[in-house]
Design a protein around this nucleic acid. Structure first.
Length: 565
RNA sequence: UGGGGAAUAGUGUAACGGCAGCACGAGUGACUCUGGAUCACUUAGUCUAGGUUCAAAUCCUAGUUCCCCAGCCA
């Protein structure tokens, strides 16, 4: 049952691929596989959409089929071209392509209108003068049937005339609708004479003011799939109840039947995924924007430093099923580290710098030492890093009174400076007001140049460093989960997800130093800062001042040891 | 109290009447010029109760729990 997915790892086939394979075997569509990704352009794409994108484009690719990009733009009040553009950019960034098959449901408005007329003529649709409130009242409840609209049995000619005049703009918003004549007593509420058209005197992002009546999503989606001859229409679980309605329209119209298959949407721990709430986070300025690196949006992940490969690998690993589930965000981070470990060049930087002076190193000397760019990738080559008498190291790499198992610098201790020398701490100065160390005095062993001792002696610790003489001052932004709880919606009575916002999700460090090889790094470039994590250059950077986002930290075994006490 | 779905280690996902497996997480150890990476080992599961069968996660019956649906949103 193993198949090869887009990233060439074997995974077992999910239930949707099993259906596609069965259809191919039986010759249902002569082996043709055609899917589509159908976003509404009313917001930015997030990691949940990535799951759907990878599924739809992935299935098509895997079985030699096609996948369309189609905007389901049936609600002019919420949709904007800005969203269209961002969605196009994000799907491309994820690595998928739709050739010339970029469609819009609004392309089908005229056809949809003609189909509505056809249903009216066949007595299967009617113009209803009930208000929205009245429709609600007559719909019944979950347990009791609805009642027929008094306009249900309007003569065909009258319906035709009224519908035409709806289109012509003779009536005000909400004054009438076109409804399908199905069954007001149906147990499935979607079948209780659902609205097909509503009057909306609103400009549409593509059709402008051409229309003042708009088809509902339910009267559009299935037919759009049909027009595009989609074989497998993949969507999320909440549309399962709508499938009978789509099938009703398809059958009444006698058009190509796409098969809809529903799967569970993605939930992630410590993450909010609903578009509405993401919009709130942006509007209420809990984050800096849709592309804030803490957002689960595709543009947020991109700015954070995620790679499309990591996102695709994640989507391949979580699988597809119908079970409501919440994936551990640690899996996403694992996929990220796995990818970045392979490809990110290494560099050194001190985020919380502490001065080290090497007493026996010549005052004005600067040496160029050899450093490997990526131990996982020999083709990445090597670089020179300058070494001098004064250095910056990480504040956490020195402890005046080290606990057991602490391998780093401490009074009298010898450690290795990565690719540099062995140094021994001989003294340190503290800030009299805080008692914290501000300067470490060391001696170095000239024989250990490059990091090896000719006498074969070992040191337990290796720490990173930057030459103070050549350091580039930069800003670094550290990120943590946006929410403090695995389930952000887990709140006390009267509170909402906002009370679970993590006040420490962003930490800005403005006095960091990195090695000079990073001076000309471009926005979007990714690096591993040794022993610290993966970082990428933020687009807010200027020629004078680089800003790095921490994409994800390295696995920190020492932190775990400390935590256990 | 209606209809539609779903229940497998902490999490996600396989097994489609024939040895419950994989991944993440967690833990232990090895190795290491990143306390990174890598490697080895360990941990831990079929919602419940009956039934059919040589054999049940899988089939049957009854129950339990969870999710979705009462927009002129998608």
């Amino acid at each position: 049952m193993a198949t090869i997915n887009s990233t060439n790892y074997p995974y077992s086939t999910d239930f949707i691929r099993a259906i596609v394979e069965e259809d191919n075997r039986s010759g249902k569509h002569d082996g043709r596989v055609h899917t589509r990704f159908p976003p509404e352009p009313n917001g930015y794409l997030h990691i949940g959409h990535a799951k759907s994108i990878c599924l739809n484009f992935g299935v098509a690719r895997q079985y030699g089929g096609l996948c369309n990009l189609r905007f389901d733009d049936t609600n002019p009040c919420k949709e904007e071209d800005e969203y269209v553009q961002s969605i196009i950019e994000d799907v491309r960034w994820l690595g998928f392509d739709w050739d010339d098959r970029l469609f819009y449901a609004s392309d089908y408005f005229e056809q949809l209108y003609q189909w509505a007329v056809k249903l009216i003529k066949e007595g299967k649709a009617y113009v209803c003068d009930l208000t929205a409130d009245e429709v609600r009242e007559t719909r019944g409840t979950l347990t009791s049937p609805g009642t027929n609209s008094p306009y249900r049995d309007r003569p065909v000619e009258e319906n035709l005339d009224l519908f035409e005049r709806m289109r012509a703009g003779e009536f005000s918003d909400g004054s009438r609708t076109l409804r399908a004549k199905i069954d007001m007593a149906a147990a499935n509420l979607n079948l209780r004479d659902p609205v097909m058209y509503r009057i909306l005197h609103a400009s549409h992002h593509r059709t402008g003011d051409k229309w003042c009546i708009y088809p509902t999503y339910d009267f559009t989606h299935g037919q759009s799939d049909s027009i595009e001859r989609i074989t497998h229409s993949l969507c999320t679980l909440e549309f399962e109840n709508h499938r009978p309605l789509y099938d009703w329209y398809i059958q009444a119209l006698g058009i190509f039947p796409s098969r809809q298959i529903e799967f569970a949407r993605l939930n992630l721990t410590y993450t909010m995924m609903s578009k509405r709430r993401l919009l709130e986070l942006v509007k209420e300025k809990h984050v800096a924007g849709w592309d804030d690196p803490r957002m689960p949006t595709i543009c947020g992940l991109r700015r954070r430093g995620y790679t499309p490969e990591a996102v695709r690998e994640f989507c391949a690993r979580i699988g597809i099923s119908k079970v409501d589930s919440t994936v551990d965000v640690a899996l996403l981070e694992h996929c990220l580290r796995e990818d970045l470990n392979r490809r990110a060049p290494r560099a050194m930087g001190a985020l919380r710098p502490l001065k080290v002076v090497i007493d026996n190193y010549p005052e004005d000397q600067i040496e160029e030492l050899d450093a490997i760019n990526n131990p996982e990738d020999p083709s990445a080559g090597a670089r020179k890093v300058p070494f001098s008498r004064e250095l910056w190291i990480e504040r956490s790499d020195f402890l005046e009174d080290p606990p057991k198992k602490y391998f780093r610098l401490a009074p009298g201790r010898e450690v290795r400076l990565r690719y540099g020398y062995f140094i021994t701490c001989v003294d340190f100065k503290t800030d009299p007001s805080t008692g914290k160390p501000v300067e470490i005095r060391c001696t170095y062993d000239p024989a250990t140049r490059g990091g090896n001792a000719p006498d074969g002696r070992k040191v337990k610790g290796t720490i990173h460093w930057v030459s103070a003489a050549r350091a580039v001052p930069v800003e670094v932004r550290l990120y943590d989960h946006l929410f403090t709880k695995p389930d952000p919606g887990d709140v006390a009575e009267g509170e909402d997800y906002r009370s679970n916002l993590n006040p420490n999700s962003l930490e800005r460090l403005t006095d960091c130093y990195v090695e000079p090889s990073l001076r000309d790094a471009a926005p979007g470039e990714r690096f591993q800062f040794e022993r610290l994590g993966y970082f990428c250059v933020d687009p807010d950077s200027t020629a004078e001042r680089l800003i790095f986002n921490r994409t994800v930290s390295l696995v920190d075994t020492w932190a775990k040891i400390q935590k256990k006490g």
